[in-house]
Nucleic acid binder design. Structure first.
Lengths: 196, 196
DNA sequence: TTTTTTATTGACGCATCAATCAATAATAAT
DNA sequence: ATTATTATTGATTGATGCGTCAATAAAAAA
């Protein structure tokens, strides 16, 4: 029962399936059949639309990055002050959409894969730069450039670190605690005063 | 020319080879043959001593953890004050022995693998707890328990985050800068004052 | 000196997957 | 009505890699 115009539908379904498969397995060691099965199609079709597995994984990472970006833009629109822009970046990073085990597992797995794939590494660098620049867009309105830069660096590392620690699912901070930690750091750096 | 008592020698060589192989490939997707080759033996011998690949990887992670631990103990012996104990933990984390691409790649890869392997996850939790407790051993002498706990959490996340960002090898902080970032955070939290 | 233990490997079986391809069918274009 | 295009899959191929095993040889024990 082949209808026409299936391509975008299948692509989306396959990317979603890839995310959930990676999320469940916790790594990129998922087979094309597994992914295709989740998307309700054959593995041959996945190859038909994406060519090779690499490309499907690449498209998936790009999709995750794009989602993060739109979420951030949306949050920026609601932020009036520089300080609020900074908080917006933090809030989005730990929002329900982003700070969930599936996405975190994917991030982690892609970080590892980036060691092998130049293209993936380039993609993750774009993320790193964008995060930095998003943070700077608020911080430069509050601190002198050099110090803003250092704070942005630390904040980004803090966010990444909290992500990785979440992956262990131990006495791990939930989103609320994570946000509080980062905000506490920011408060200290921006006001020279920490929470009581 | 089989000499006797080769077992410990081979084990060590295989673990070292595993680290360097993982470091080069950037992931745990290294074959037993590759590892064995680097160690100058056949893959059959690797299986002979470690049984399965899992066990070799596990032994490798345990070795890395043990090294980190002895380094930390040594640094603790030179630390007089609580404040120095905290700095010692940071210094060891970014020492030449630990903060090198091979080891970092291994950490990252093992974090991913921990999603699948319960035993590996347990091992990494031990690391997380030990790091926390090592930080606390200094912090509790400076801050009230609750706050010390939060600072330890943030510091640990900061360290992990700087590790992960190093893996991208981009505008990445070198060891010096990384230490400065963490120390700056600690100074702010402990003195309520940041670097000029 | 014979036997057992330790060290070591090449070759092989077996399973897993990525990727291809030929075949089928429905829709659209001519 | 015929041809081309799009959608789809089952079956197959080829490669890769883990784990095993029988075979060889040196040392240690008997």
């Amino acid at each position: 029962m082949p209808k026409i115009g299936m391509e975008p539908v299948r692509r989306k379904a396959l990317i979603d399936a890839t995310i959930s498969a990676i999320g469940e397995r916790g790594s990129l060691d998922v087979t094309m059949s597994e992914i295709a099965g989740r998307a309700g199609v054959s593995s041959a079709l996945a190859h038909h639309y994406f060519g090779a597995k690499d490309e499907l994984l690449f498209a998936t990472m790009r999709h995750i990055l794009a989602e993060l970006n739109t979420d951030t833009r949306r949050a920026f629109n609601l932020a009036g002050t520089p300080r609020q822009r900074v908080s917006a970046v933090v809030a989005v990073s730990f929002s329900d959409d982003q700070f969930q085990s599936q996405i975190i597992a994917a991030w982690l797995a892609f970080y590892v894969e980036a060691q092998k794939s130049t293209e993936l590494r380039r993609l993750l660098r774009i993320y790193a730069r964008r995060l930095h620049s998003n943070l700077m867009s608020g911080l430069t309105g509050i601190l002198p450039r050099t110090e803003a830069d250092r704070v942005a660096e630390a904040t980004a590392a803090l966010i990444d670190g909290l992500y990785i620690r979440r992956a262990l699912k131990d006495g791990v901070p939930d989103a609320q605690t994570a946000i509080a930690l980062v905000e506490d750091y920011l408060e200290t750096k921006l006001n020279g005063r920490s929470l009581p």
